[in-house]
Each structure stands twice: as structure tokens, then as C-alpha cells.
């Protein structure tokens, strides 16, 4: 789940909701609406901004992979009309703060950069169903590309704290666009592999070889966000090895709460409404047995 302005990821076949109950169901607390004060806001790399909000009611219950809706319009402005969904990059439960890293991709995110310390942003969260760490997991792989990595960083922290070995791949167009590597290292990931398009290291060949090597030695779950190409690699590996895959999707949204039905994952010809990215996701799973188109 990343900022909606990044554009919708195409829907993928055989998407399944995470279970509603049981050990592999995500924990979901009711969302809170608050006017969250900006604590820190600044550029961390070209196009990438980091925003820290004082949002105790969200920080208290947020789980990895969940998101918040941020209202970008200020005061009497009537644009942007829609709030923006933002992955929650990290949090400080005791301090009551949440952290968001976003990329400026359009007018909405450009205007978001104007908020400064002390300003209050209408924020609703935590929203959606996040990633699930299986109870017996010992080793997981995280595949993130570009801003998509920001949905995965919090998962690394929770996993590492449980003693799970985290192997993270950070992929980007170029080295300036590599975000999340530091967060992974700080969280205690055992391996952080950063790859970029400019030197070819992010290609399907090298990344596929790295993933295969990891899976050969045993991986309990693969988590992906931000790239259909990475997801396809993960699904190939899942089919070969039986490893489960969880993916976080992005979509344009209006309500973020599941009632406007703007963000359906959308397969034409379905006889029932397809899952909603905001309420049923943003994290979905691909069962190991599911055929991959």
C-alpha cells in the first residue's frame, strides 16, 4: 500500500483475502479520526519525503501493512477533494507517533509537502488489514520496489523482534530512489539487498537468482509491494516451493473505510463484488496451490 497518486497496480489473478479469524488473520482495531500535529516533515531523498505525526490513537493499535487517510487540502481549500491513502512506515507506540514516507508523484503529494511542523492534518487510521506473521515463521523474505518498500518496513521490525530472520530486497530505478534500507537495518534485518535499474542489478535474472537461493534454504513467507514484476517472481517461487505470498496493493480511494467501493480490485465479469483494497486489503495472499496466470 502506497500513496494512491502512484497509480493503481493492475489486479492479479487468484487474489485471496487474509482469513478473518485464527492465527493467520491480521489484527484490526477500529480506526480513529484525529487532527494529527506534524512533528517532523522534510525531504529525505529526491522526491521522497518523511512525515512524522503526533497520532497516539493510531500509534496505539497500528499493525504492519496498515495505512492512514491523510487530508491534503488545507483550511478552506477545496482541492484536493480526496484524502490520500498512505502506508504507515513506522511508529512509536509509547510516544504516540506514526511515520510516513511518501514520494511526490502528482499534485496531491506535491501539496502535501507544504504542511509544516505544528500544522494539524486530518488523519483517519489505522485502516485496512495488514501483513500477518505466521506463528511458526523463522525466516521471511520482503520484496519492495520504490515507495512500495514503505509498506514493508514496519513488518521487518515486528518480525525481527520476534526472532524471525528477515531478508529484504530493496529495488528502485536508481540509487537516489532506494528507500527503506536503513529502516530494515535498524530493525535488525539479517540481509538487506539493494538493487537498481541503472546497473542492471534489479533485473529479473539477478533478483530471481537471489530469491531462489533464499527459498532453497527455506523461507516461511514472501511479502511483496510496489512491483508486479517482483510479485510475479514471488509467485513463481511460491509455485515451485509452496511458500505463501502476501502482497500489498495500491489503489485510488475516496473513503478508505470500505463503503464507497471505489477501490475494488476489479476483475471484469465477476458475479460478486471483488475485494476492496481499503477494507479487505491492502494485504492479500496468494495461496501456494493457486495457479498463476
Amino acid at each position: 500500500m502506497v500513496g494512491a497518486s502512484a497509480g493503481a497496480t493492475g489486479s492479479l489473478p487468484r487474489l485471496a483475502r487474509l482469513p478473518e479469524t485464527g492465527p493467520s488473520a491480521p489484527r484490526v482495531a477500529p480506526p480513529a479520526l484525529l487532527e494529527a500535529a506534524v512533528v517532523t516533515h522534510g525531504l529525505i531523498a529526491p522526491e521522497y519525503w518523511r512525515l512524522v505525526l503526533d497520532a497516539p490513537a493510531i500509534a496505539r493499535t497500528v499493525e504492519p501493512g496498515q495505512f492512514a487517510m491523510l487530508t491534503v487540502a488545507r483550511g478552506e481549500e477545496s482541492w484536493p477533494v480526496l484524502p490520500r491513502p498512505m502506508a504507515i512506515y513506522g511508529w512509536d507506540r509509547a510516544g504516540g507517533r506514526i511515520e510516513i514516507v511518501y514520494r511526490v508523484v502528482g499534485e496531491g503529494t506535491r501539496r502535501l509537502t507544504r504542511w509544516s511542523c505544528g500544522d494539524r492534518i486530518v488523519t483517519v487510521g489505522p485502516l485496512g488489514r495488514g501483513f500477518v506473521l505466521l506463528p511458526a515463521a523463522q525466516r521471511i523474505v520482503l520484496l519492495g520496489r520504490g515507495i512500495g518498500t514503505c509498506s514493508l518496513t514496519a513488518l521487518a521490525g515486528v518480525a525481527a523482534a520476534r526472532g524471525i530472520a528477515v531478508h529484504a530486497l530493496v529495488s528502485a530505478r536508481h540509487s537516489d530512489a532506494l528507500v527503506g534500507g536503513e529502516a530494515y537495518r535498524a530493525a535488525g534485518a539479517v540481509e538487506v539487498r539493494e538493487v537498481v535499474d541503472t546497473d542492471g542489478s534489479s533485473g529479473v535474472g539477478p533478483v530471481g537468482a537471489w530469491l531462489a537461493e533464499n527459498c532453497r534454504t527455506g523461507v516461511d513467507q514472501i511479502y511483496a509491494c510496489g512491483s508486479d514484476r517482483l510479485l510475479r517472481l514471488a509467485l513463481e517461487m511460491a509455485r515451485a516451493t509452496g511458500t505463501g505470498v502476501q502482497v500489498s496493493l495500491e489503489a485510488h480511494m475516496a473513503c478508505g473505510l470500505g463503503f464507497c467501493h471505489g477501490c475494488a480490485t476489479g476483475h471484469p465479469g465477476l458475479v460478486e463484488e471483488s475485494p476492496l483494497v481499503c477494507r479487505d486489503g491492502p494485504v492479500f495472499r496468494h495461496l501456494p496451490s493457486a495457479p498463476v496466470a
Binding site: 482541492w79 480526496l82 496531491g108 489503489a251 477501490c263
Partner: peptide, 20 residues
Amino acid sequence: RVGNITPRVTETPAGMLNSI
């Protein structure tokens, strides 16, 4: 009723278009 094919919402100047 199943909703329409996606995308279903987009922002416009001072407004939005929806085709839920």
C-alpha cells in the same frame, strides 16, 4: 449488484468523478 469495472474514482479540479 456488482460494481463497475475499475478504475471507479478519480479526482478532478474541485471535484471527483465516480462510476461505482
